[in-house]
């Protein structure tokens, strides 16, 4: 089937089998490799993308279902080549990762949180990433990264806005 996807503010027409997940479509058809397969059954969260600004598991959505939504992947967050968004930079500052496999999804989950809540408590941050499993860090430096990003964005009056 043909489907037109709006990804990172660009339209992409792709031909997919109905059974192709949005995750596989992003990776295999569009070479947007920042979304990762971890479990393919909706538990680990490594495949998280934003659909109209909300964090969603791209392994639980078929590409044919995804037309008409504003889809944001990690590739859409960098302001420019080699440049980091405030959240990405905060993850670097606290070293909120190790192997990097869950990281794009974590950052998108953080993005979804901070676009609704500019001053999250620790519990709110923990809740917002609780559907994203990280096996490396024990989460502490991830939570710190999100808190730091929130603080910096408040200080600079940066809004994540709707992607």
């Amino acid at each position: 089937m043909k489907v037109e996807l709006d990804i990172n503010n660009e339209k992409h027409a792709v031909e997919v089998e109905p059974r192709m997940s949005l995750l596989d479509c992003l990776r295999d058809k569009l070479l947007l490799n920042g979304a990762h397969a971890g479990c393919e059954h909706g538990v680990c969260g490594a495949c998280t993308v934003l659909i109209d600004g909300a964090a969603v598991r791209s392994c639980l959505m078929f590409a044919v279902q995804a037309d008409g939504y504003a889809i944001t992947t990690i590739e859409g967050l960098s302001p420019g080549p080699g440049e980091l968004s405030p959240i990405q930079d905060a993850f670097c500052e606290t070293h909120g990762m190790q192997c990097g496999y869950c990281t794009p999804a974590m950052i998108l989950a953080a993005h979804a949180l901070l676009s609704k809540n500019s001053q999250p408590t620790r519990d709110e941050i923990v809740e917002a990433i609780s559907g994203n499993i990280c096996r490396c860090t024990g989460y502490a430096q991830i939570v710190e990264a999100i808190a730091l990003a929130a603080e910096r964005m408040r200080g600079q009056n940066i809004k994540t806005g709707q992607p």
Binding site: R27, I74, S78, E93, M97, P104
Partner: peptide, 19 residues
């Protein structure tokens, strides 16, 4: 000091085997 590997990972530009 910062960890240099982190820059590629936060951008989704790690190079994993499935990539």
């Amino acid at each position: 000091r910062r960890v240099r590997e982190d820059r590629r990972f936060v951008a989704g530009k790690g190079r994993f085997v499935a990539d």
